[in-house]
């Protein structure tokens, strides 16, 4: 059992948990993830480590309510427990001195981007971060990401805050105006795909963090297989970071839809039950 030390609601359906897991906190690195399972009947789902505190022995995760498991997770409060918490999994993001690096975060991905931006900055890079959300109400951790970066650009799709537009627009401008040595883009698959498309003509290495469906997260099941440069890879052990120009995006997005019907059924059942109890 792992204790939830703290819960924060960042925006209505994105929440932060600090979970007590000292052994994981000792090893976590930027770009890695954990697998969480709420209880006996729960599903194993992967979430990126958004931060860690070795002293306190805690791991911070940030998740968005999308289906049954994340909705169930959102019912938990500080002081509650989850049954399983495994990590740190996956290969850490490659951190080196590249020069100027642009970190792009879409939606909840501000969470995984922050430790990466911080590590890149510490390694001597100039870090320009771009964060985008659909609207003002979905933005969080603006100050956190700003302090982890040398420069921050914020966008909203509807223009309700900061710059109106998609994250790819400032990315395009940066690529046109100065020498960018590397781009790291994390967010929904479509957003990562378009970031990779934007950087491709400039020949700038672009890393993305893939989010296929996973089960064990240790290379045992092959559920997370993705195609990169024409080769099948297991995202949980070979990634989750891959060269965005080599990823077969259509395959990734098709495989994310395998359980659409079941996911809908599970969510409806959960909502019916939750409605019942309240």
């Amino acid at each position: 059992m792992y204790k939830i030390l703290l819960r924060q609601d960042l925006v209505p359906d994105i929440h932060l948990f600090k979970v007590e897991a000292p052994a994981v906190a000792r090893k976590a690195q930027p770009g890695q993830f954990i697998v969480i399972k709420i209880d006996e009947k729960g599903e194993r789902i992967p979430l990126t480590v958004a931060d860690w505190d070795e002293q306190e022995g805690s791991i911070t995760i940030i998740f968005m309510e999308v289906g049954a498991t994340t909705h169930r997770l959102a019912q938990l409060k500080g002081g509650d427990f989850v049954e399983n918490f495994v990590g740190p999994l996956g290969v850490p993001t490659h951190i080196d001195k590249f020069g100027t690096v642009v970190c792009v975060a879409g939606g909840f991905a501000v969470a995984p981007i922050k430790p990466i931006a911080r590590a890149l900055k510490q390694a001597g890079n100039r870090v320009i971060s771009i964060m985008g959300a659909r609207n003002k109400n979905l933005l969080f951790w603006e100050d956190e990401l700003r302090s982890a970066s040398d420069q921050l650009i914020v966008t909203t799709d509807d223009g309700s805050y900061a710059r109106k537009g998609l994250v790819t627009e400032p990315l395009q401008e940066l690529l046109e105006s100065e020498k960018i040595d590397r781009v790291i883009a994390i967010g929904p698959s479509l957003m990562m795909k378009f970031c990779a498309k934007t950087t491709e003509p400039f020949g700038v290495k672009t890393f993305v963090s893939l989010n296929p469906i996973m089960v064990d997260g240790t290379g045992m099941c092959g559920c997370c297989r993705v195609s990169v440069g024409g080769e099948t890879k297991f995202a949980c052990v070979d990634g989750p970071d891959f060269d965005g120009h080599q990823v077969d995006w259509d395959l990734l997005m098709a495989r994310q839809r395998i359980y659409l019907k079941e996911e809908k059924c599970a969510l409806e059942q959960w909502q019916a039950q939750a409605g019942h109890h309240s």
């Binding site: 009947k41 729960g42 599903e43 194993r44 049954a68 498991t69 169930r72 089960v215 064990d216 045992m220 099941c221 092959g222 559920c223 359980y259 079941e262 996911e263 059924c265 599970a266 059942q269």
Partner: peptide
């Protein structure tokens, strides 16, 4: 994967168990 979903995660009892 198939056997893990069925045996370990008890997918044969979905949706009582969460793993489809």
């Amino acid at each position: 994967e198939f056997l893990t979903r069925v045996n370990l995660m008890k997918g044969y009892r979905f949706p009582e168990y969460d793993t489809p």
